[in-house]
Design a protein around this nucleic acid. Structure first.
Lengths: 155, 155
DNA sequence: CTTGAACCTCCAGCCACTGGAGGTCCCATA
DNA sequence: TATGGGACCTCCAGTGGCTGGAGGTTCAAG
């Protein structure tokens, strides 16, 4: 009997392109994460190519997932740190998640308001020359809503 | 009788700070708009301070309003151009507004999905040590959703 | 005339990457 | 073993839409 069990998976070596393919994070971005200290520097081949372990793969997946959920980099750093200290209480993670939800809620409200206003503008416009266009008119009404919504989001 | 009518309002001169106060756009941003060609260079005082006309004020209001609605700079340039050619058909404005609505709709859908996932994570976590934290667990599940949502928005 | 707020220019920095230039390495096939 | 071409390397500049600071000048009120 051969003994394939001795090959522990965590030691597998993956090129950057493979990591990119498997996580959906571009190779350039992976290198940038390394530079920023989010991902530890991997081993290198003799020629200098990066060789990643399964730990790298997992960590990168964690980062990607957190990014997709809209967590900012500082929050991700915190979460990564916490994930690496399993005995610590997870209150921080909880707080970060709640803050993220609150952030998303505020964006949702803002976007819904924008949507309503845009839809109103678009519906009011009946075509024809620009001088009669309700869209342009509404935009030009610069006094409008000046004090109502100065929470800025840009979209 | 004096003749105050001769003082046409469009010729009034406003300092950059006044423009900033009245439009809610910071002075630095106003200067930057000028640099980017969104706002024409205003007159200057002898000492070099910018002196804006009411036309500037209106144009800046237009820009601010469009920005608040989430239009990107290129779209704003187009809208400004259109607003300056009143005889032209406003189809372009209509199309831009519709595109903006579509963009907002897509962001809304994405944010709603994120909200759902985050809320689920937060609800599943019952506190305790990080090693049992469902939030961290979910984040670490890097295979998760890899193929479902690769429209990226980052929140 | 003095004060100090407002203004000026220039330039660097923010976030989270992205892309290009110019070169090197790896490995599958002939 | 040679070769071709794709994957990889580093370095650096650019993206959008501003923002802030340094260091100096001007303006208007008192």
């Amino acid at each position: 009997m051969d003994q394939p069990m001795r090959e522990i998976p965590a030691a597998a070596r993956h090129a950057i392109g493979e990591l990119a393919r498997r996580t959906g994070v571009k190779a350039t971005t992976i290198r940038w994460y390394e530079q920023e200290g989010l991902l530890p520097p991997p081993a290198r081949s003799e020629g200098g190519h990066r060789l990643y372990s399964d730990d790298h793969l997992r960590r990168l997946g964690f980062i990607r997932h957190a990014r997709e959920l809209g967590f900012a980099m500082p929050a991700i750093r915190t979460l990564l740190g916490l994930a690496g200290r399993p005995r610590e209480d997870c209150t921080t993670a909880h707080a970060l998640a709640k803050a993220q939800i609150a952030e998303i809620d505020s964006r949702l409200r803002r976007l819904e308001a924008l949507r309503t206003e845009l839809a109103g503008m678009a519906a009011a416009c009946e075509g024809g020359p620009a001088q009669d266009c309700r869209i342009l008119e509404t935009l030009a009404d610069f006094e409008h809503g000046h004090c109502q919504h100065h929470e800025h989001e840009t979209g």
